[in-house]
Amino acid sequence: MIPGKFEYFAPSSVKEAIGLLDRYGEDAKILAGGQSLIPAMRFRLAQPEILVDINRIEGLDYIRELDDYLAIGAMTREASLEKSALISQRYPLLADTAKVIADPLVRNMATVGGNLAHADPANDHPATMLAYDATLVAEGPDGDTIIGIDDFFLGLFETSLAKDQILKEIRLPKPGPGSGGAYLKIERKVGDYAVVGVAIQLTVENGTVTAARIGLTNVAGAPMRAKNAEAALIGNAPTGDILEKAGQAAAAECEPWSDLRGSEEYKRDMVRIVTKRAIRKAVERVGA
């Protein structure tokens, strides 16, 4: 399968890339890792007239823990997240996620920024970043904009990024005392999209859950938080009963559809079960 024709630009700076986006508007598309875009172009599901390849821009590929947050460059490859000792030691939810995105070959190219900006509810990072309460930094003609993750996903393949903005950095809050997280995904085979996926980041103090955010993968038309499940957890000890309540809440508030990966009923029940398992795993990690 051959993609449609396009004009190709490989700018060497973010400013130059923004200039191209500004000039070509809706006709232009950013090429990051390309592992979602190029397959879509081969199927002619995407036919951009202009491709702005940002792989030649230096300085967008890094993982740095600063005083207040973890900073991840938007062009950081999934494989770098997967292999980072810092991530595996201190950001277990992110480490879990990076390991189950597509397959090892795809992860050598795929980027965390692309995974988010593509805004596919079947992608894994949206749920994870919702659970982390991440902050995104985008640059446009008027400089940098800070976007809270709750304001980022507007719908299927739709974000609050303007056509001339480029996602540059993802910031995660540093893990505080009593925090833990986990990502669990049911997939038919390595490389497939999730049947369901659940991301959770929580804080437990003196046996009580004091904070929790839960993101769900591939069970709604857009990346979503399971807010009722969060509410069922917060203020309570993570007992079996509470976990069941949270699982049932998540199963009720998600909006899955029947397809090759399962019926709606099956997916809801998997959301219930995987939510419980993910909470249990996150709580176990609090002590670790």
């Binding site: 190709y8 490989a10 090429l31 390309g34 592992q35 190029i38 397959p39 081969r42 390849d53 792989n55 494989a79 090892p104 070959l105 795809v106 050598n108 190219m109």
Partner: peptide, 15 residues
């Protein structure tokens, strides 16, 4: 040095 799927990269990217 990295293993990648050459069906999901444009030749121009290998420049």
């Amino acid at each position: 040095g990295k293993a990648v799927k050459s069906c999901t990269i444009f030749a121009v990217q290998a420049d």
